[in-house]
Write a protein that binds this DNA or RNA. Structure first.
Length: 511
RNA sequence: GCCUCGUUCGUCUAGUGGUCAAGGACGCCGCCCUUUCAAGGCGGAGGCCACGGGUUCGAAUCCCGUACGAGGUACCA
């Protein structure tokens, strides 16, 4: 119940005698959101921390919900985050196959064994009967539960059903009395009354096993030592320990990790708009930042450290420091962290990694389609040098820096006119700046700034007023990198042309 | 409804009976820097540690109850 008395030393040492083998076992029913990846990350980090093995297994026994492409997307996501897999689909491994639909026979074998040992039984109830029963129980505000009718069928009734070849499923016969203790390494002992637990289906009429049997058989034969899964599994855990017991198998160590909630405080779900890994990729989050962020959702190292490289994480990650209470995913903090990672990138790498975001089509979030691709690497590097500390995502660069690439600027002429100025004085200021700029040699920010400052005071303007007008003229924007550095990158010709165009604009509103 | 888990600043968290009149981070606010925007520096607001009872010389930390939240209650995972 508490965190203090939750680790039985004997059990811990029993497990550590074997090399840790942990798995991530998602169902391919859609696109994995970050909550799933976070749980996978904990397993992966632990495995890499103690030189174990990380297995990916696809729990595709619900064929009706299986979504085409989900496995590829999942693997791509793990790849993106840098979680390498030791055994799994595609790469294979000694304990395959790694798709549950391909392990059907195994589940049937153990379902039968459980029937023979008296721990399970065939249930001939029709879905309609179950449905009616459920409705009635609900109407009487009773807990909806299978009434175990088929558990107590006479030999004759069984024979009749078989003779009529009534379709059947296999149900696990939960003990009718007593308690089941689920020992969890994080939560301690959790006690359940057996009578509260349903006789769950362990083999469906189509011959496939649902989660409750399938994952357990697989974990056993794949030699899984630690089971990390979401806390939503706690309520079915007593069922699992009973099945392990009935099969005579040793239990793995359980770690029910906290869920990640959305800002609505509900479990993250795709339906409710939880982001997929590909959303982060598309917006230009760095996988190493996302990885760092995810690691901190339900795990902590100490009271202050929170920036970790992948290697750091592997080195310091331990399961003992995984928390137990659900947490809300905070997009603002991720955004901040992504900015930190962007700022730390060597400029070459930043350029290389940002280029694809800039070059993709405008519809996909890239630069305006009028801009010629491919982009010039050196030019983009100089642009990004100025933008680096201002970027929170790589994807933002296209919006913020379009003016560096585009031929004609679109902006509201009023933005040229600074506080305390009017069209005429702005026009005069720009013209004076233009005249001065013509003489600047070489075209470098250090050569521009001192004379331009002098010009401002000569004109009786604050630097902010003069520079603000030029800034808008040259970029079409009021928030940009430092003016003269920006003009240096933009080049003399383009900078001066834009100032001329601004003057023309002002001349027009003048009358 | 029933069962289970959880509950420390808005959010992520540190905290394993005294060093906690609760520390860090994001966000927010202010100041500094400053040609704008950032970044950076400094400072601030924000928590009766869900509530109520115990245990103890001493409790955010242990126990009990309550409230609230979440999860489960499928031939889904």
């Amino acid at each position: 119940m508490t965190q203090i008395d939750n680790r039985l030393p004997e059990q811990q040492s029993k497990a550590s005698a074997k090399t840790p083998r942990l798995r991530f076992a998602p169902s391919p029913t859609g696109f994995q959101h970050i909550g799933g990846f976070r749980t996978a990350l904990f397993s992966w980090l632990y495995v890499r921390h103690c030189a174990g093995q990380f297995i990916l297994r696809i729990e595709d026994t619900d064929t009706a919900r299986t979504v085409e492409g989900a496995v590829d997307d999942l693997i791509a996501g793990m790849n993106w985050l840098g979680m390498d897999i030791d055994e799994g689909p595609i790469i294979g491994g000694p304990y395959g196959p790694y798709y549950q639909t391909q392990r059907k026979a195994l589940y049937q074998q153990y379902a039968n064994q459980l029937i023979e040992s008296g721990h399970a039984y065939r249930c001939y109830c029709t879905p309609q009967r179950l449905e009616e029963m459920r409705k009635e129980q609900e109407a009487r505000s009773m807990p909806p539960r299978y009434d175990r009718r088929c558990r107590f069928l006479t030999a004759q009734e069984r024979a009749d059903n078989e003779a009529r070849s009534t379709p059947w499923v296999v149900r696990f016969a939960m003990p009718l009395e007593g308690e089941t203790v689920v020992h969890d390494e994080l939560h301690g002992d959790m006690v359940f009354k057996n009578i509260d637990i349903d006789d769950t289906v362990i083999l469906k009429s189509n011959g496939l096993a649902p989660y409750h049997l399938a994952h357990l058989v697989d974990d056993h034969f794949m030699g899984i030592t630690h089971v990390l899964r979401g806390e939503e599994w706690i309520s079915s855990a007593p069922r699992h320990v009973q099945i392990y017991k009935a099969l005579g198998w040793e239990l793995p160590l359980f770690y029910h990790v906290p869920n990640i909630l959305g800002t609505d405080k509900k479990k993250l779900s795709k339906r409710r708009g939880a982001p997929a890994w590909s959303d982060f990729q598309r917006e230009g989050y760095l996988p190493e930042a996302v990885l760092n962020f995810l690691a901190l959702l339900g795990w902590s190292y100490d009271d202050k450290t929170e920036l970790f490289t992948r290697e750091d994480l592997i080195r310091v990650f331990t399961l003992e420091r995984v928390g137990i209470s659900a947490g809300i995913y905070d997009p603002d903090k991720l955004l901040w962290m992504n900015g930190v990672y962007i700022r730390r990138l060597p400029i070459d790498e930043l350029t290389r990694r940002t280029l694809p975001y800039l070059e993709r089509s405008q519809a996909e979030g890239g630069l305006p389609d009028s801009v010629q691709r491919p982009l010039d690497y050196e030019y983009t590097l100089r642009v990004l040098q100025l933008e680096q500390e201002r970027l929170k995502t790589l994807g933002e660069a296209a919006q913020k820096d379009a003016f560096f690439y585009v031929d004609t600027l679109t902006y509201d002429t009023a933005l040229l006119i600074q506080k305390g100025m009017n069209a005429a004085s702005t026009q005069y200021g720009l013209q004076s700046a233009l005249d001065l700029l013509t003489t600047i040699q070489p075209w470098e920010h250090a050569a521009m700034e001192p004379p331009m400052r002098t010009l401002a005071s000569t004109l009786g303007l604050k630097t902010g007023q003069l520079f603000g007008s030029i800034r808008t003229a040259v970029s079409g924007s009021t928030a940009t990198p430092p003016l003269f550095q920006m003009m240096e990158v933009l080049g003399r010709e383009r900078s001066m042309t834009r100032i001329e165009q601004a003057i023309e604009r002002l001349a027009q509103i003048d009358h």
